[in-house]
Design a binder for these strands. Structure first.
Length: 892
DNA sequence: TGGGAGGCT
DNA sequence: AGCCTCC
């Protein structure tokens, strides 16, 4: 739709390596007035620079050999943003003085109001005094502003992929590529659109360039930049009805500074020759973005207030007071140097909602307020489509002394993924209830509720927002048949998409291209979502579970292939790029640090393609099987990382890798490394085991179970073990890493995992709290039943087994592979298990339970003494042989 | 003086 | 978790 679209293409501007540019300080030179007309010569000027730059690696005459100002950066500042949005929503307000109010503060106002002397950040009282007819609109709800803000940013991405947001009303865009292409095409009329800083009303001409003028070609580029800026502002107004100010220069700092020199709805170009003039025109250092309140105070103490004073101050002195990094950046900024790239914006990383008030002094008030905030935040979250991994509560306590800055305190905690399973507008209330409990928990950590308190602000926030993995194992466990079907389809789809994206060198640009091809994207957020979650795969032939026929499709490039095939060397990084696409947000640090052997019937290539979270869940379900293979390492919360000090496991793995390389069929030998691991971890494990509390009985069982399992194996000796606690006792994961002979075995107990998977179902089973509670209890018992037999003790509760009849109609009617069990009528399940709940379970779950019970009753109970730390005398082992979901990843 | 958001430590 | 910064 726009001729500029072509500039988004990757080839555009590929011959300039901007990242490696050495940005020199602008030379001070004068500028001559005159007319500009450079169509024929412009490319000459440009190419001259380009050639010299390419051919000379090191030159003594750097100023002429290098592109000093290679970039063209635009800064757009929306005029009185909130007011504009309100005037668009209600055009009647257009010719009235309008103010946007947040509490008793006027955060912004339209230009009509400014005629009366009303201004931003003025108290409502003062504003009303200056303009009694001022129309006030509450701007506390940012929904509309946020929406428009993203529409604007998204609009700008048509011109370049490099769009950075600075708050709701400012955007920086790097149009270097587009400028370069226009110059290459040579068909541009070179004139400056809008103002020229310091040379207003004048025009430029190449012929008039004084000898001191910058010769890097930036004049041409900035001239083209000004035209593009004008085009953009024009289009922005016609499409969205938004007016803004534009700044055109060669770095972010300068573009921003110059954008504000002509307001409103105007644009200004800054050439390097005028940079110093602009800098010196600033009254205060504070006007340099990056110099905030506190650095300003420090500078004031050094009796530095102006930009000029920073310029003449010695770097040494600044470093003494500000520290080296800050001093350097401040110094550079004050010299007009800013080499920071334009950071393309993405989906918001956090989502928060807050409210301030004069006084909040009771728990009930707080609860009510938190609930209110939560409710609106959850609505936003629902729209966003992602799911948070952490929740944060922030409060501002009343400060007796007139404390200038807002003294906030916050507490945060992880959020159970199950909370957001089946999160929809229908379940919003339930989710709200759950988060509210978490919030109140945090609240008591922040505020001593036994003492009188006085809060002036509450903020609720979700962070670590991650894409809902549609191939989450949780969906597999979903009670509805449809959901399970979706699970399979999404898995297939995900793999198909991945294989397609793998071929794209620059996924990000690819996204932008797709975006620019969209007719009129309703919203970037929406677009990103729909394009990656609902996009029609349109290829029914893709058989992701059949590597024989489709392996080539999945792994297009060699490097990737070598990563994925069993027995080859695991280099560890090639999959990174393919996961940048946003589907894979649950793996932040992707590298393959650990090796395992997967069960023989599991296809490594399919396994490798799974998201880290799924891999982890699967690894857990492999249970007692010895596995080698690759698991995505997810950072702190990674199960494997919890196992042992990272450095050691990494070095161990490296050695193993070598071993695998030289002899792919051999087992990993870790003789010498074993020692290290043992030494470093025995003491820790003892401590951890001892630290088990009554609450963690469940984990004790599971831990013991692992031990039992191992002990039952010949020549097995448990050398070390570590257990890591999660937030709640159901979230704990026990990991046991032990040495058997010379082979390293990884055992991850599956009991707690079972609790988790099942537990996450509770909200989908019933909204009735009592049923949910029953369910939770059942989950625990189920887990129990997995690790012990006979009369199990959990805390003070004694669990017995019970026999029930299984109805015929519970037999699974599904086309998916059947679990290897023979139907039996009589099964043992824990006595207290509610039969109704059992019957309400999805068939798959039931089957697993049935299977488990069968195995248990068939297996010989091996009674042994348990861990000395356990006060429960009798334990027996139960080997989990059910693979459940595993069977879907089977080769055969 | 608001209601966000992000980065660094 | 706090601090600083930006709007």
């Amino acid at each position: 739709m726009d001729s500029s679209d072509e500039c988004v293409s990757p080839e555009c501007g590929s011959d300039i390596d901007l990242e490696n540019e050495d940005w020199g300080q602008p030379t001070s030179c004068s500028y001559s007035d005159g007319q500009i007309h450079i169509p024929a010569t412009s490319s000459h000027v440009f190419q001259q620079c380009n050639e010299s730059r390419c051919t000379e690696t090191t030159s003594s005459d750097r100023t002429s050999a290098r592109l000093e100002h290679p970039r063209t950066i635009l800064h757009f500042d929306i005029d009185c943003f909130y007011a504009q949005v309100e005037m668009i929503r209600n055009p009647e307000l257009k010719d009235k003085p309008l103010g946007i109010q947040q509490k008793y503060l006027l955060v912004t106002c339209n230009y009509k109001a400014r005629e009366f002397g009303v201004n931003k950040m003025m108290s409502v009282k003062d504003a009303k005094e200056k303009c009694p007819n001022l129309v006030l609109i509450s701007g506390e709800d940012l929904t509309h502003y946020r929406k428009m803000s993203y529409q604007i940013s998204e609009f700008l991405t048509r011109y370049s992929s490099k769009v950075e947001r600075l708050g709701f009303d400012e955007n920086i865009i790097d149009i270097t590529n587009m400028v370069q292409q226009r110059i290459h095409l040579g068909n541009c009329v070179l004139e400056i659109k809008g103002h020229i800083y310091g040379k207003d009303g004048a025009s430029i001409s190449k012929d008039n360039l004084s000898p001191e003028s910058c010769k890097c070609g930036c004049h041409t580029r900035l001239a083209v930049g000004s035209q593009i800026a004008e085009d953009i502002r024009d289009a922005l107004f016609h499409e969205l009805g938004i007016t803004c100010c534009g700044g055109i220069s060669y770095n972010k700092l300068l573009s921003k500074l110059v954008a504000g020199t002509h307001k409103p709805n105007q644009q200004t170009t800054l050439f390097p020759e005028q940079t110093q003039e602009l800098l010196k025109s600033l009254k205060h250092v504070r006007q340099i973005p990056g110099v905030g309140w506190s650095t300003c105070k420090v500078l004031e103490a050094m009796s530095i207030t102006s930009v000029r004073e920073v310029q003449s101050a010695s770097l040494e002195n600044l470093e003494k007071e500000l520290g080296k990094p800050l001093a350097m950046t401040i110094k550079q900024l004050c010299d007009g140097i800013d080499d920071t790239p334009v950071h393309p914006y993405g989906l918001p990383q956090t989502m928060s909602d807050e409210d301030s008030f004069r006084k909040l002094a009771s728990v009930s008030e707080a609860k009510e307020k938190i609930r209110e905030l939560l409710h609106s935040l959850l609505k936003r979250l629902l729209e966003d489509g992602r799911v948070p991994k952490t929740f944060r509560l922030t409060v501002r306590k009343f400060q007796t002394g007139k404390n200038k800055y807002t003294c906030r305190e916050s507490r945060q905690c992880p959020v159970f993924p199950s909370v957001f399973l089946n999160f929809s507008s229908d379940t919003l209330e339930q989710v709200c209830n759950q988060i509210e409990k978490i919030a109140m928990n945090l609240f008591t950590k922040l505020v001593d509720t036994n003492q009188p308190f006085h809060l002036t602000l509450i903020n609720v926030a979700f962070a670590k927002l991650e894409q809902k993995s549609k191939i989450s194992i949780a969906n597999y466990f979903s009670p509805t048949k449809q959901k399970r079907k979706e699970f399979e389809e999404n898995l297939k789809e995900s793999n198909a998409k991945r294989s397609r994206l793998e071929t794209d060198r620059d996924t990000e640009d690819n996204i932008r291209i797709l975006l620019s091809q969209e007719k009129k994207p309703a919203g970037l957020l929406k677009w990103l979502r729909t394009s990656f979650t609902n996009e029609d795969v349109g290829n029914n032939n893709t058989r992701v579970l059949d590597p024989e026929s489709d392996g080539g499709n999945i792994h297009r490039n060699q490097k990737s292939e070598s990563m994925l095939l069993l027995g080859k060397v695991f280099e560890g990084t090639s999959v990174q790029r393919t996961e940048k696409d946003g589907m894979q947000t649950d793996s932040d640090q992707r590298s393959y640090k650990y090796t395992f052997r997967l069960p023989k019937d599991v296809d490594q290539s399919v396994f490798s393609e799974l998201p880290a979270s799924i891999q982890q869940e699967l690894i857990q379900s492999f249970s007692t099987e010895t596995v080698t293979g690759k698991i995505k390492c997810n950072g702190k919360n990674d199960i494997l990382q919890q196992m042992s000090p990272a450095s050691e496991i990494t070095s161990a793995t490296k050695r193993q890798t070598e071993s695998v390389k030289s002899n792919p069929s051999s087992d990993c030998r870790v003789t010498d490394i074993s020692r290290k691991l043992i030494d470093s971890r025995t003491s820790m494990s003892n401590k951890l085991v001892q630290s088990f509390t009554e609450q963690n009985t469940l984990q004790r069982y599971s831990f013991s179970n692992v031990q039992e399992t191992l002990k039952s194996k010949q020549n097995t000796k448990i050398q070390s073990c570590s257990v890591t606690e999660g937030v709640t006792h159901t979230q704990n994961q026990s990991v046991c890493n032990c040495i058997q002979g010379e082979q390293q075995i990884l055992l991850i107990d599956s009991c707690t995992h079972n609790v988790r998977s099942l537990h996450s179902l509770h909200s989908s089973i019933s909204t009735d709290e009592s049923v949910q509670n029953k369910w939770c209890l059942f989950c625990k018992q189920y887990a129990m039943s997995k690790c012990s037999e006979e009369n199990a003790l959990v805390g003070d509760n004694k669990y017995l087994k019970q026999t029930i009849d299984i109805e015929d109609d519970l037999q699974i009617e599904t086309q998916r592979p059947q679990l290897p069990i023979s139907p039996e009528k009589h099964l043992e399940i824990p006595l207290d298990v509610d039969k109704d709940i059992f019957l309400s379970l999805p068939p798959d779950i039931q089957k697993e339970i049935i299977l488990d019970c069968q195995i248990r009753s068939k297996s010989q109970a091996v009674k042994t003494g348990v861990n000395a730390n356990s006060k429960h005398g009798k334990m027996s082992k139960s080997i989990k042989s059910s693979k459940g979901i595993l069977s879907y990843f089977s080769k055969c």
